[in-house]
């Protein structure tokens, strides 16, 4: 479904991606792990066209993403941003129904609102939240609204950028479980980036570790603990000592 070949991206003299190769099969949940600043978010943004790669090929269903019609291409995606990225000036239901209210397939306002409330219910929020504004919600509720917005238009591919960052462990568990349920229910292809190992175990079918601008290891989540790769072992066990340099 998504195939990335020899992807490079630098910001000035900082080479973030140095030849990433990755394949995400249709209907699979791929989790990308790696330390802060290793280019996980840049990788997602390259796929979506938010960041232009220096070189390399990104294909979705065999089509080069630079040669497809942008609107139709983006309509296949949903994305949950790290901080939620909810629009402050719009109410919760208008955020969730943003895509449903605009574009060629737009719905009448009442239908879009009903669809938004249904998605809010799916992520565990009551209809009373619909008319509130994002600033009135807690961090966990904002994540849920972001999740509802990401799935509102029933996308084929969903990206989750650090879905549990800033949440307490219980709320993180709730969000992880919701993501897994929704991805399975929709049959969507999912790509999640995180450094939270509880998210990895809850969400992933396959895991890939990004280090030094390349995919260091990838495989089924069941093989993660058994891999002898010292980089993976250091990361998943959170050890200060090991081949990954840590700044103290």
């Amino acid at each position: 479904m998504i195939r990335i070949t020899d992807l490079h991206k630098s910001f000035g003299t900082n080479a973030v991606l140095r030849g990433v190769d990755l394949h995400v099969p249709k209907g699979e949940s791929m989790v990308i792990i790696g330390g802060s600043g290793t280019g996980k978010s840049v990788l997602l943004k390259c796929i979506l066209g938010l960041v232009t790669p220096d070189s390399g090929i990104i294909e979705v269903d065999g089509q080069d993403v630079t040669k497809v019609k942008r609107d139709a291409f983006l309509a296949r995606f949903g994305m949950l941003f790290q901080g939620g990225a909810l629009f402050d000036s719009l109410s919760v239901w208008q955020n969730v129904a943003f895509r449903l209210l605009r574009g060629p397939g737009r719905l009448p306002k009442a239908e879009a609102r009903a669809a938004a409330i249904e998605k809010l219910r799916r992520v565990g929020l009551t209809p009373e939240v619909a008319d509130q504004f994002p600033a009135e919600l807690s961090g966990g509720m904002q994540k849920r609204v972001g999740l509802a917005r990401a799935i509102a238009a029933e996308p084929e591919i969903i990206f989750f950028d650090e879905p549990t960052t800033g949440l307490d462990p219980i709320m993180a568990g709730v969000i992880n479980a919701l993501i897994r349920e929704i991805v399975e229910e929709m049959g969507a292809t999912a790509m999640t980036i995180t450094h939270d190992m509880s998210s990895v175990r809850a969400i992933a079918d396959r895991v890939a570790m990004l280090h030094g601008g390349k995919i260091r290891w990838s495989g089924p989540v069941a093989e993660l603990d058994a891999t002898p790769d010292p980089y993976v072992q250091q990361f998943i066990h959170g050890r200060a000592e090991g081949p990954i340099e840590s700044v103290r």
Binding site: K45, L48, L74, F77, R99
Partner: peptide, 17 residues
């Protein structure tokens, strides 16, 4: 500017806007 630093501009793009 605040929309940019909180990724709301990126969110607009991903929502085909």
């Amino acid at each position: 500017g605040t929309m940019k630093v909180t990724e709301q501009i990126d969110a607009l793009t991903t929502l085909s806007t």
